[in-house]
Nucleic acid binder design. Structure first.
Lengths: 199, 199
DNA sequence: CTCCTTGTTGGACGATCGTACAACAACTGC
DNA sequence: GCAGTTGTTGTACGATCGTCCAACAAGGAG
């Protein structure tokens, strides 16, 4: 025994490892199990280190929200980058990616629910949520514009697609037995086709 | 001072008052603030009484889930009962009711999120969730059948509408500034019209 | 080699958690 | 009136929470 038990890390790397440990704990245990001690164990560090890098556990969770949000965006970007430049194909790729791992994952939903559960109590989390979703819809709007959706319908169309995909994603992760990812994809694709061909 | 500080209640009424106090605490504080003591204060009773009526706080929260689910169903039923027997009018009433109080209410969402956050950790809550949503979709399916949706499309159509309404309801409660209840209603109504007229 | 800065540890602290339980108040049957 | 039953209270207990901080380890500057 008597391992080193002490290892110094690059500050940014340590911050990141704490954030990702928080994401893993949130995914596995939900918000109820995300204690400073559990996070520290998951990250393999001492509990006191959390206070050294973040102003309390709330700031750590907020940083985790931002990080996980970025990761989701990156996964969607990667899925869309796999197709060509055809906007319609990019839209389909975005929908398809929403219902397969790593997006469709009960652990990711548990993490996301933990963030939602803090929106009411913590204004900082609420502001972060508004930022993330606004950016999300803004990107969807530019994609829809490339598909030929008129400026007047742009905003509501983006809201509709976001809501449908979110609702399907939510229930798919909550109780995967109720329908399959393929069915979710079919529903969303059909809906988008109806919206785009209605013009 | 020296109020009675002791009042005996009908067992069922006491159970119900504990359940509704739990719902109020969940709505105001989220799952993090739903402690036995906070619930007891809200209900105006002693903390020890919770253990007398429920096998721990988890059972109380599960009972609250069932109760709130019933209340939501009752509100939707009431909205649909206000219309005639025309199935399409009932469907529109159901959608409209989803985006105004008491359904569209940040407090109700906070309560619902608290339940979602327990689905992963507590199998009893997961089973309850499956029951509630299955019943929800079953009722929607019968309504859609009356609207003339074919048996083959029934299941996926119900899933699609549930997902869209849930997604709109979720974001409307989470950040009411992003769109108005009227816009949510318009989106959902248009979507339903597209689904029903596509046959 | 020595000092100094700094990442890191591990435990102490008070608060709060869920639960259990003895004492007490009200109602019932007699 | 007088026991017996039962709803109710208040508190005590151990566990766990977030935060804080003195002590320690590692690396760089002189």
């Amino acid at each position: 025994m008597s391992q080193p038990a002490f290892s110094r890390a690059e500050p940014d790397a340590r911050r990141l490892s704490l954030i990702e440990a928080t994401a893993r704990v949130l995914a596995a245990e939900g918000v109820g199990g995300a204690s400073v001690r559990a996070i520290a164990v998951e990250a393999g560090v001492s509990p006191g280190l959390v206070g050294h890098y973040f102003d309390g556990v709330d700031a750590l969770i907020a940083a985790t929200y931002a990080r996980v949000g970025e990761r989701v965006n990156a996964a969607l970007e990667a899925a869309m980058a796999g197709t060509g430049d055809d906007p319609r194909a990019r839209l389909d790729a975005y929908v398809t990616a929403s219902f397969v791992p790593p997006i469709a994952d009960p652990g990711l939903l548990a993490t996301w629910i933990a963030f939602w559960s803090l929106v009411k109590a913590k204004p900082a989390i609420a502001a972060l949520h508004d930022d993330i979703y606004a950016a999300y819809r803004r990107e969807l709007e530019t994609l829809l514009a490339e598909c030929g959706v008129g400026p007047a319908d742009l905003r509501l169309t983006a809201i509709a697609i976001t809501a449908l995909v979110d609702g399907l994603w939510l229930e798919l992760c909550l109780s995967p037995a109720s329908f399959t990812p393929e069915e979710a994809r079919a529903i969303a694709t059909r809906h988008i086709a109806a919206l785009l061909d209605a013009r």
